[in-house]
């Protein structure tokens, strides 16, 4: 653990897909205040890790653009934007969601 790393570089850091100003730590399973100093569960979200995740699960998702990312080229385009490593389970979505078809 290095000194004074920001939480948002962490692999567990994610945001609410509809309200990106709500910050969530998947590891703790709670909303955290932003900005915040990384805790000891910090895992650095490196480019390599993202690439690995992309090739394994086949896709990533850019929350800022609301678009899936299917390949490295696309990932590069969203490089400076927020791409969560994981998604949290939104317990209320089902109560809020309308239905279709």
């Amino acid at each position: 653990m290095g000194e004074s790393v920001e939480c948002n570089k962490c692999l567990h850091f994610t945001v609410h897909p509809s309200y990106p100003y709500i910050v969530i730590c998947v590891d703790l399973g709670q909303v955290v205040a932003q900005p915040r100093e990384a805790c000891r569960n910090y895992v650095s979200k490196t480019w390599d890790r993202l690439i690995k995740q992309l090739s394994e699960s086949g896709f990533l998702y850019c929350v800022e653009c609301s678009r899936p990312i299917f390949n490295e080229e696309e990932l590069r385009k969203h490089k400076t934007e927020f791409i969560p490593f994981e998604f949290f389970t939104d317990e209320v979505a089902y109560e809020e969601a309308p239905s279709g078809d």
């Binding site: 897909p17 699960s57 086949g58 896709f59 998702y61 929350v63 609301s66 678009r67 899936p68 299917f70 390949n71 080229e73 696309e74 994981e86 998604f87 979505a93």
Partner: peptide, 25 residues
């Protein structure tokens, strides 16, 4: 290329949905 098969339609599946993995495959 795989990307040649991607359409321009905005994909409205929930972020994180497993369906993305299927279409990626």
């Amino acid at each position: 290329k795989p990307s040649d098969y991607q359409s321009d339609i905005w994909n409205d599946w929930c972020p994180g949905c497993g369906d993305f993995g299927i279409v990626a495959a």
